[in-house]
């Protein structure tokens, strides 16, 4: 297991480096650079005419004139060695200051969504398989089809409406008014938790429906395995038997799709964030792209992909732990 983990760790680091190179190339893709944009913004309407050499001077000042490979090495070196993601040109401060809190809030939304997804779908999927053909099974199946059919921004609106009605106006966003700009404290953290369940539920919605089906299907297969009958024939009590033998393998497909879930959550987050008034990275990413603020965009892209790659690593390790045969094939 140790060796397997080490191998996967090396694999993850190599992937991250390749990804960072790709992110950097993507950052370079839009036509023009920040120097043009900066000059336009600074001097438009002032009557000053900007010459090509002025722009070139800005370019040199911002370090944008160096060859691309060198700029990449500067950039990645700063990130790895100093945790410095570069300058946020439009904000005239460091990238870290601009994205700081938003990174943690996005991560909090992501993790709570994953938690809700798995804590709801795995037990229900197992139960549906064990009670296969019962009224409860059919009920759950119908509900989970509904879950697949209902778009989650619609769900967000519906939930928001009821939440407002029942809990007062203070439910959108991630913080109550009194904590929004307050420094971090225990009270603020608790306030965050109280606000997180709603976006988590909304974002988890379709994944829950999908994963219930997956768990139910694999669990139904696993329950009928001879090894389960054999364990039963040794007198293993039923609940323990189901959890120890078939359930362990039934969550395999869920664990192996953690990466997909993370991807999906990231792509659905911006629209849900708009509806629920959340602070997250997606919106900033779009803004940075429009402003050609490349280091902000790059940092966000890199962090989001890093999260996906890391979650894939976690999923690999979990899979190998769940099913030791996987290590053989590695």
């Amino acid at each position: 297991m140790l060796r397997f983990t080490a191998e996967r760790l090396v694999g993850m680091i190599v992937t991250m480096l390749l990804v960072s190179l790709m992110v950097f190339i993507i950052m370079e893709l839009p036509p023009g650079d920040y120097a043009d944009r900066y000059a336009f913004r600074k001097y438009s309407g002032t009557g000053v005419s900007v010459t090509a050499s002025d722009i070139e001077a800005i370019r040199v000042e911002l370090g944008l004139d160096k060859p691309m490979m060198l700029r990449y090495l500067d950039w990645i070196g700063g990130i790895v060695l100093r945790g410095d993601f570069g300058q946020a040109f439009a904000f005239e401060t460091s990238v870290v200051k601009v994205i700081g809190d938003k990174v943690w809030l996005t991560l909090a939304i992501l993790l709570s969504t994953l938690l809700v997804t798995y804590l709801v779908s795995i037990p229900i999927g197992i139960l549906a398989a064990v009670r296969r053909g019962s009224a409860a099974d059919y009920g759950l199946t119908v509900i989970s089809y509904l879950g697949l059919a209902l778009p989650n921004f619609l769900l967000a609106l519906i939930l928001l409406y009821f939440a407002n009605k029942w809990f007062g106006a203070d439910i959108g966003g991630l913080f109550s008014a009194e904590y929004a700009d307050a420094p971090w404290s225990l009270g603020k953290a608790w306030d965050l938790v109280k606000h997180l369940w709603l976006p988590a539920l909304v974002l988890a919605w379709s994944a829950v429906a999908y994963q219930i089906q997956t768990v139910r299907a694999t669990m139904s297969d696993e329950i009928n395995k001879l090894s389960v009958t054999a364990a039963r024939a040794r007198g293993v009590p039923e609940t323990r038997l189901l959890l120890k033998y078939p359930a362990r393998l039934a969550i395999n497909p869920v664990v192996s799709t953690i990466g997909f879930d993370v991807n999906r959550i990231f792509s659905e987050l911006p629209i849900v964030a708009v509806v629920l008034g959340l602070t997250e990275l997606g919106e900033l990413l779009l803004q940075a792209y429009l402003d050609l603020d490349m280091y902000v965009a790059g940092a966000i892209l890199l962090l989001l992909t890093a999260v996906v790659v890391f979650m894939n690593f976690v999923s690999d390790i979990l899979l190998a732990w769940l099913d030791p045969r996987i290590k053989l094939g590695a």
Partner: peptide, 24 residues
């Protein structure tokens, strides 16, 4: 019934591989 299974009456099957769980 559980005490009977395994403790009083043991059972072996045709497929030795399939009667073990592969993950323990």
């Amino acid at each position: 019934a559980r005490q009977l299974r395994g403790g009083e009456i043991g059972m072996i099957f045709q497929e030795p591989m399939a009667s073990f769980s592969p993950v323990y």
